[in-house]
């Protein structure tokens, strides 16, 4: 076992034990703070279904946002007018909290799957757009001059210089956005849903079934962590030159 894994793992185990001891010793009522043993003991297969809903919505919204943001970034950088016209609007939308928009999305798209997908996509779109635009513009002027001396056309400059150059920026934005996508999906479920972890949290806390709330929170974290590490797996392989440079 590597140290990088062992150290945080032992701290985690220590915290969980402290939590268990505190709850038992102080006789904290279960509806306020259930003990780790109770949370794990009351786990039920039905949680998997809820995870499936939320993860599906988050992933779908995240994928849509990734594709749109990448395409949008290329259009922004290729056509300055589009960037000048849309970037301020994009920034305004970015600063509008998703909680404020979610009710509208449910109103427009219903309480089903698509309103959550839209919320997840909306919240994860902007970091990817902004970072990818930054990455596409990042190649220093000398690199662009190099391509000019080779008489490259705009398409070649994008394919062989700008796009590979922006990939590290794109991936780091995707990692940020992956956790945001889950926030979007859960907020969407808070507003109106029949399934999902957000729905589970709202219903269980209303009925003071606090262990189920903790289970849902843990599950949301698990989805986030798996998305993050999956992305990191691909990042290490696709933008290998960045890892190698900093090693």
């Amino acid at each position: 076992m590597t140290r990088a894994f062992f150290v945080p793992f032992s701290f985690f185990v220590g915290l969980v034990i402290a939590w268990q001891v505190f709850v038992v010793a102080a006789a904290v009522p279960e509806y306020l703070l259930p003990s780790p043993l109770v949370i794990v003991g009351t786990l039920d297969k039905s949680l998997l279904t809820e995870i499936g809903y939320t993860a599906g919505e988050a992933l779908c919204g995240f994928a849509i946002a990734g594709v749109l943001a990448f395409t949008g970034a290329i259009l922004f950088v290729r056509f300055r007018t589009i960037e000048q016209g849309l970037f301020p609007i994009a920034i305004t939308l970015k600063t509008t909290p998703i909680v404020a928009i979610a009710p509208l999305l449910v109103l427009w798209l219903g309480t089903g799957w698509w309103s959550k997908v839209a919320a997840a996509a909306l919240i994860s779109f902007f970091p990817v757009l902004v970072n990818t635009v930054k990455g596409l513009k990042a190649p220093e002027a000398d690199f662009q001059d190099l391509f000019r001396t080779m008489r490259a056309d705009q398409f070649q400059v994008f394919r062989k210089l700008r796009i590979p150059y922006c990939l590290p920026y794109f991936f780091s934005a995707l990692k940020i956005s992956s956790s945001l996508a889950i926030v979007g999906a859960i907020v969407g479920e808070f507003v109106g849903a029949e399934h999902g972890l957000g729905y589970l949290i709202v219903i269980s806390s209303a009925h003071l079934e606090t262990p189920a709330v903790f289970q849902a929170i843990g599950a949301a974290a698990l989805i986030g962590i798996s998305m993050f590490y999956t992305l990191e797996f691909f990042e290490k392989r696709i933008v290998f030159w960045i890892q190698l440079e900093t090693e």
Binding site: D145, K160, F240
Partner: peptide, 24 residues
């Protein structure tokens, strides 16, 4: 023009960097 800096593309091997003008 050979620039003051090498300006090699980090995601390309030596050979891939060298064939770049031909590719373009």
């Amino acid at each position: 023009l050979m620039f003051q800096k090498p300006l090699l593309l980090p995601w390309r091997t030596t050979l891939q960097n060298i064939v770049l003008p031909a590719e373009i």
